[in-house]
Design a protein around this nucleic acid. Structure first.
Lengths: 116, 116
DNA sequence: TCCGATTGTTACGGAGGCGTTATAGTCTGA
DNA sequence: TCAGACTATAACGCCTCCGTAACAATCGGA
């Protein structure tokens, strides 16, 4: 199965949702930051800096800096992997889960209001 | 009518598309930049700095700077409004139209591949 | 036990965005 | 006509991010 969407509907949906994020979100996240956040909250753990860097096709410092930013906002947290102390495990937070949930609700609402 | 989407589907779609933009897009645009770009290409002209600032709920210099950046990439262009020379009209470009079209195709493709 | 490989972070100079404020150009109506 | 309103942009100091390179900590096999 799949979600059927025309290009014009797709673009209108994207526009409406990003506008919602800009107007009400408070933060102005980049595509990289959003991708990291959603990856951590949607894909099965564990998540490491190296794994995220490979998945996004960026360097490790990019991930470290994004985690610094989103960690300061308490949207994610970090923990040493005790099994292999070179690794850092990126963990979810209550605040981050609520934020992601809000984004999901926003997309669903804008999709529902989409004229077709 | 409307597009029916569950929260988990919505988030997975958002994740897949932003990941595609990060991996293949080359640029790392912010939500503000994407919103400006899509507004210019989806809503009926004319578009002015003041109008975009009001719509996004940000100050005018934010719009000016975003237009500087996207103008350098030739995704939009600017022209003085001859009827009222205080205004600047933001115009579409061939390069920008192709870019927006690519985003639309990406969303449609990821929606089609979405498991449900 | 080391020595190479691996992981994440920090340091660095540069680039660009931020909000606020100031400014140049343009319009409009008293 | 001209003073005030309005438009977009420039200037300012601050902050964050960039890519590259160096780094400390840790692991694992010879």
């Amino acid at each position: 199965m799949s979600v059927v969407l025309r290009p014009s509907e797709a673009l209108n949906l994207w526009h409406d949702v990003t506008l919602g994020l800009v107007r009400d979100g408070g933060h102005d996240f980049s595509a990289r930051q959003i991708t990291i956040l959603l990856t951590v909250y949607l894909e099965t753990p564990p998540h490491t800096v190296r794994g995220l860097a490979a998945k996004l096709g960026v360097t490790k410092p990019v991930i470290t800096r994004a985690l610094d930013t989103m960690g300061a906002l308490e949207l994610v947290s970090r923990r040493r992997d005790e099994a292999d102390r070179r690794n850092v495990i990126i963990q979810r937070t209550v605040k981050g889960a609520l934020f992601v949930e809000k984004i999901g609700d926003l997309i669903v609402a804008r999709a529902k209001d989409l004229p077709r």
